[in-house]
Structures are given as structure tokens and as C-alpha cells.
Simulated assay, not measured.
Amino acid sequence: MNLDRAVMIFAGGMTLLSAVLVALVSPWWLLLTAFVGLNQIQSSLTGFCPAAMVLRKAGLQSGCAFEPREAAPVGR
């Protein structure tokens, strides 16, 4: 498993967990759903993902989404 898949599994798991908590405990758990969604948006725009940092330190290898970007070739 690579880092990209682990991050997606983590985000999906947190979303499903919050849905269960909304149904069984309180609608306030929708704040967790909102947090996960906002974090996914900011991660896609900035490339900064706290979950990816933690999982990378745990030893997972990067996939293509979390590799450093190289500058695009100029003047092809």
C-alpha cells in the first residue's frame, strides 16, 4: 500500500465514522465530516496534508500524489 491509498482510506474511514456517529450519537458530528472535507480541499490545492506527513513517518512510500512537484519544462 502506498501513501496515496492510505490517505484516501483514512479520509473515507473518518467520513464513514462521522456518518455513523451522526446517526447514533449527535448531529454535531457533522462538524467532523466538514473538517475532513475541508482538509481534502486544502490538501488538493496546497499539497500539504497532515495525515500524509504522519503516514510517511510511519514508513509508507509516496505515490504520485504526494511526491514533490518538479518544474514544468519551459520552451519545448
Rank of each mutant, 00 (worst) to 15 (best):
M53T: 11
L45A: 08
L38R: 02
W29E: 00
S26A: 07
R56E: 01
A19E: 04
S44E: 02
L30E: 04
L16Y: 14
A51R: 03
V54P: 06
L31W: 15
I9A: 14
P68N: 10
A19V: 09
L17N: 03
T15S: 10
T15A: 13
L17R: 04
A51C: 09
G63Y: 01
S62R: 12
F66W: 06
N39Y: 00
A72P: 14
A11Q: 04
T33D: 03
F48R: 00
A23P: 06
L60I: 14
P50Q: 02
F10P: 00
A34L: 13
W28H: 08
A19I: 08
T33Y: 07
A11H: 00
S44R: 04
W29D: 00
G59R: 06
V74F: 15
V20T: 03
A23G: 07
V54H: 05
G59Y: 08
A72L: 15
R5F: 15
L24G: 11
K57C: 10
L38A: 06
L55A: 04
L3G: 12
V7E: 05
A11V: 07
L45S: 00
Q40T: 05
Q61A: 14
R5I: 15
S44T: 07
L32H: 08
R69I: 05
L31D: 11
V74K: 13
L16A: 09
G75P: 02
L60F: 15
L3F: 10
L55F: 02
L55W: 05
L16R: 08
F10V: 08
V20Q: 04
W28P: 03
M8T: 08
L21G: 05
L24F: 15
S44F: 05
A11T: 05
T15Y: 15
G37K: 11
G12W: 13
G75H: 09
F48T: 01
Q42R: 04
F10G: 06
T46H: 00
A72G: 14
A51T: 06
R76I: 10
L32S: 11
S18W: 10
V74G: 12
R56Y: 00
A58C: 09
G37S: 15
S62Y: 04
L45R: 02
L21K: 02
Q40V: 01
M8C: 12
R5Q: 15
A65D: 07
L38V: 00
A11N: 01
M1C: 12
W28V: 08
S18Q: 06
A19R: 03
E70Q: 13
A71G: 12
S26K: 01
M1Y: 13
P27D: 01
L30K: 07
D4I: 03
M1V: 12
P73F: 07
G47F: 01
W29V: 02
G13I: 10
L55S: 06
V20F: 15
R76K: 10
R5T: 15
D4G: 08
E70F: 11
G63D: 07
P73T: 08
S62N: 13
K57H: 03
Q40F: 02
A51L: 06
T33A: 10
T15K: 11
M1L: 12
M1N: 12
A52P: 05
E70K: 13
E67R: 13
G47Q: 07
L3W: 09
